[in-house]
Simulated assay, not measured.
Amino acid sequence: MIDMGVLGETQTRQELAHLLHTAVERSGRNRCEIAREADIHKDALRRTLIGERSPSVGEALRILASSGMPPHAHMLLFLGAGGDQATRWLQTDIARFFEELICELPAALERVLGNQVHDVKPRWAKGTAHRVARLLADHIDELERKDALLGDIFATTVGGRHD
């Protein structure tokens, strides 16, 4: 059951303002540039960043994009995992990975599952998420092993010949 208290307008506006403010600050760009690129009046941006004004979804996405952040990833993280998680992942490779993942996942599910896409049960989501994370961890471990092996091979090769 969803806790309706965490969906309150004031709390949601403040958490989104914090995410957007942090994104703008970390971008290294001045607010006027971001406002211009995001097509938002500079005063509306200022009021959004301090939580006095709620941005539209489009405005929030444009502010994130103008700040150099993966906009869809951060909005989905904000909606699904909360503002703290979205803020922690600002300017990280995992956020860019998540952006690509969420953009590709619906089409991949339809392509791979075909007609079975309608048989998927919501209760499987948590286990699937853990399985995907484990698969990714195994993939990273395998790549690190291959890099180490290639490094060893490269280190033993001198002038194109093996010692």
Rank of each mutant, 00 (worst) to 15 (best):
L49E: 04
L64T: 02
I50C: 10
E110V: 07
P70H: 05
A129V: 12
G151E: 00
S67V: 07
L150G: 01
P122N: 05
I102V: 15
H130R: 14
L101W: 06
R161G: 07
A125V: 14
V117R: 07
D141C: 08
G159P: 01
A23T: 00
A65Y: 03
N30Q: 09
E144V: 07
M69A: 12
E142Q: 14
M4H: 09
G114A: 07
Q116G: 01
P71L: 06
R29E: 00
T92W: 08
K146V: 15
A107T: 07
S54Q: 09
K42E: 01
A137M: 11
L7S: 13
I153P: 01
H74N: 05
E100T: 11
G82V: 09
G68Q: 06
A95T: 11
T87G: 05
H72I: 11
C32R: 10
F97L: 11
Q85A: 15
K121C: 04
A81F: 09
D138P: 02
H162M: 13
F97P: 06
L105N: 06
A65K: 07
A148Y: 03
V112S: 06
I102E: 03
D147S: 08
Q11H: 13
E99N: 10
L7W: 14
H18P: 02
L150E: 08
G51Q: 00
H130W: 13
L20W: 00
A23P: 00
Q91D: 15
T157F: 03
E142G: 06
L79M: 15
A38Q: 04
V6G: 10
V132A: 15
R123Q: 14
K121V: 10
L77Y: 06
D39V: 08
R88F: 06
E37V: 07
G160F: 01
E37S: 03
L101H: 00
E59T: 06
H162K: 13
V117N: 06
L79E: 14
H74D: 04
S66K: 04
R96P: 06
E110L: 14
V57Q: 10
H130M: 11
V117Q: 00
D147H: 00
K121Q: 13
H130A: 10
H18C: 08
P70S: 12
T128C: 11
